[in-house]
Simulated assay, not measured.
Amino acid sequence: MSARAGRTVLITGGASGLGAALAAEFLARGDRVLVTDRVSTYDGTGASYLKLDVTSDEDWESARAWVEQQWGGLDVLVNNAGIATGGRIDVVTLEEWQGVIDINLLGVVRGCRTFTPMMKAAGSGQIVNTASLAGLVHPPAMASYTAVKAGVVALSESLSYELAPFGIAVSAVCPGFFRTNLASSLHGSDTALDKVAARLIERAPLDATQVAAEVMKGIDAKRMVILPDKAARRAVMTKRFARPLYDRAQRKFGARLQAITTRNQKETS
């Protein structure tokens, strides 16, 4: 099912990575796109740009006012902004936990709270929240990331039922690892695990453009959970239907991570 062209679309974290790739997909369809991000300048073409920090209530109010003044309403909200994080529970600080909660979870909450009244008034709309495969399957040494991404999945599911009577569809996008600049946000306390995560991102088989093309299919179909790559779908199916195999694989991964971090510690000592 193809969505109609000419919609109004706001994308957070849209200056790079998956957000930029999604912006290109919407623009190619003839949609009007407002890209928002924390960067001061934006060199993309075809889209409008507004600086927006998703942790700022004032920035969200400015975005709402811009949309109302320029477009008179919003058809699609893509809450995409986020940072990569992870690490062992006894290494990652509470400040790091608070940071990822504020950006990856409460940033999505703020976006939904800002634009839901506008969509309710229109009797239509679509909210797309970028979660992660980590919101559905929960590898070791990623507790801060999996916890908030699971929260985004839960938020999206709950809102999909809550907002359906108003003609508003809600989806959670749950890709596995793909090549993006997200690795650049890995600056946590657990540097050994950050290096492992960065390698997984850099060696992923798909890039943001490929993932975005698949995400658009899920958006068109208004799927509640969008799994845009085979690896993500396989992981979810394994957890659901072959739980002992899934558990063994995650424990094996945990042992491997422990071996890597122990080796790294010896090399740097």
Rank of each mutant, 00 (worst) to 15 (best):
V211W: 01
V211E: 00
V211L: 00
V211C: 00
A212N: 02
A212C: 03
A212R: 04
A213F: 06
E214V: 01
V215M: 03
V215E: 03
V215I: 02
M216S: 01
M216F: 02
M216Y: 02
G218S: 01
G218D: 05
G218E: 01
G218V: 01
I219S: 01
I219Y: 00
I219T: 01
D220E: 01
A221Q: 09
A221W: 03
A221M: 08
A221L: 05
K222N: 04
K222T: 02
R223D: 08
R223A: 03
R223F: 04
M224S: 13
M224G: 09
M224I: 10
M224W: 05
M224V: 15
V225E: 12
V225H: 07
V225T: 13
V225A: 07
V225R: 12
I226C: 06
I226N: 06
L227G: 06
L227F: 07
L227N: 07
L227K: 10
P228W: 00
P228L: 02
P228Y: 03
D229K: 07
D229M: 03
D229R: 09
D229W: 07
K230N: 06
K230I: 04
K230V: 10
A232P: 15
A232W: 09
R233I: 07
R233N: 07
R234W: 13
R234G: 05
R234K: 15
R234Q: 11
R234V: 12
R234F: 10
A235W: 02
A235H: 07
A235N: 10
A235C: 13
V236Y: 12
V236N: 08
V236F: 05
M237W: 10
T238S: 05
T238R: 11
T238H: 04
T238A: 07
K239Y: 05
K239R: 15
R240Y: 05
R240C: 06
R240I: 05
R240V: 08
R240T: 09
F241L: 14
F241A: 06
F241P: 04
F241K: 11
A242N: 10
A242I: 02
A242P: 10
A242M: 12
R243A: 14
R243T: 14
R243Y: 11
R243P: 14
R243N: 15
R243G: 13
R243F: 14
P244S: 08
P244I: 04
P244T: 06
P244R: 08
L245P: 14
L245T: 12
L245S: 15
L245H: 13
L245F: 15
L245E: 11
Y246T: 14
Y246L: 05
D247E: 14
R248E: 06
R248D: 05
R248P: 13
A249M: 09
A249R: 15
A249F: 03
A249Y: 10
Q250L: 15
Q250G: 10
Q250V: 12
K252E: 06
K252G: 05
